[in-house]
Design a protein around this nucleic acid. Structure first.
Lengths: 253, 253
DNA sequence: TATCTTTGTGTCAAAAATACGTAAAGCTCT
DNA sequence: AGAGCTTTACGTATTTTTGACACAAAGATA
């Protein structure tokens, strides 16, 4: 060991001891059903309190894998589209004592008082394929429309707001196909864009741009059953193997 | 305590024990000097190995405040523009043993083998105001042009690449004024855009757009000393107090 | 069969992006 | 001092993109 090594080792030792953290993942799982954007929420046992699905990152576990695991356990889905979007690490994220009371945890002890840092991930999933599954602490797992999400535990309302903002921001770079079934109509795709953006779009212009994007493939079938003209079904064109990965596309809207 | 509380408490206890982490911040500090984008790097004591500035997040410390602290200590700057851009949390981020050897830390013990999760922050700072200051483990703190950054310790080359990508992505929503001195010329602003985007821009069109953005204010003085026509000096127009915060601007380029 | 709504295409004007022309300014080098 | 060169500051023309809206065909309902 060279001369300066000893103080370095001691320095590290000291720093490490002061810098131990609890790290969790909060998953905002977006689905799209009946023309509405939905999130998957959990109701805690014996309460009427809801929260986002989440969990702790294990030692030596890749955080992306942890997010995958956590979302997989609540949805039953294996291949997931996940995106990390924010770190929630304020010194005081919410009123801890009030929160523990809501979920019937002891308030007096110090062992719950640690601040937890959360990594925010959002997932885009196909609504119909999800099997909502509660975890050890919860008794119900259910979809909620984004418009009428109740007051949630922790800072989870805030986390959803930031997730939605992030989703909006990179709507165009994002493969929205994960939110839709294999085949869909252009008007359905339009509704999806409209709900994410929170504003109506002109159907005719949307049509043109969707076509011009080159991402879609028209199928010979049409969707019937609606009281109006039967729209064609489309699907996302499978990725060309020789195409540039993650190229920046011009905005759809 | 209600009936189900005991298992819940036990569950938490167990989970918490398995989920202790070391959390660090790696800061990519961008500066702009002589028409080049630069990053601040540190040379480790007794070696020729360089790394990004970084540090550990303390218990109960806000992660944003931690980033602020870490960048402040290396630059001497107090009000910083910081942006969290990615979490680096793969199970294996780099060859730890090889890295410890490079910086003369003992390889045999297990105490260094823990995986550390890093939060990536980038800072935009005014090059001339920075006083580069090494830390306990390093002996030199210096600017490097992005083009000739050497092979760095840990996964820091990768972190810089991701930081640059993020900066490019939100160039237009970002206040680039932090990278420039109070007054500057349009060609200087153009060089900054060109280096960040990595492509040349048409001077005449750049001029028009910069004017049309409404963000700039022309001063009566010109910058002389160049062997050509003296360009006017400009500065960023101070924010209107009644303006919308963080509105989405159309792209400059 | 008439009516109503929605889909799939087309048209057209406004706006934005891009290409490029050019005079004036400021230096350097005869 | 003046020719020559490069760069700034501003202008014009052309192309591309966006946004608004017309309309016929399709499919159901009354």
């Amino acid at each position: 060991m060279t001369e300066y090594n000893d103080p370095a080792v001691r320095y590290y030792q000291k720093v490490f001891d002061q810098c131990i953290h609890y790290l969790s993942i909060d998953g905002v799982i977006f689905g799209f059903h009946q023309n509405q954007l939905k999130v998957l929420l959990l109701r805690w046992k014996g309460t009427n309190e809801w929260s986002l699905p989440g969990g702790f990152i294990r030692k030596a576990e890749s955080v992306d894998v942890a997010a995958q695991r956590i979302v997989q356990e609540r949805t039953g889905l294996d291949d997931l589209y996940l995106q990390q979007f924010h770190i929630f690490g304020d010194a005081v994220r919410y009123d801890q004592e009030a929160t523990w009371r809501k979920i019937n945890l002891p308030v007096d002890g110090t062992q719950w008082s640690e601040r937890t840092i959360s990594l925010g991930y959002y997932a885009l999933v196909e609504h119909s394929k999800v099997i909502p599954t509660p975890d050890f602490l919860t008794e119900l797992c259910a979809w909620w429309s984004l418009d009428d999400v109740p007051t949630l535990l922790f800072d989870h309302n805030h986390i959803i707001a930031v997730a939605l903002q992030s989703l909006r921001k990179d709507l165009n770079d994002q493969p929205l196909n994960h939110l839709l079934p294999d085949t869909f109509t252009i008007p359905e795709l339009q509704r999806l864009h409209e709900t994410i953006l929170g504003q109506p779009l002109d159907a005719r212009n949307f049509y043109k741009k969707a076509m011009a994007s080159g991402l879609l493939e028209r199928l010979p079938e049409r969707r019937s059953g609606t009281p109006h003209k039967a729209p064609y079904l489309y699907r996302f064109r499978p990725d060309e193997p020789d195409a540039e990965p993650a190229q920046h596309r011009p905005p759809l809207f």
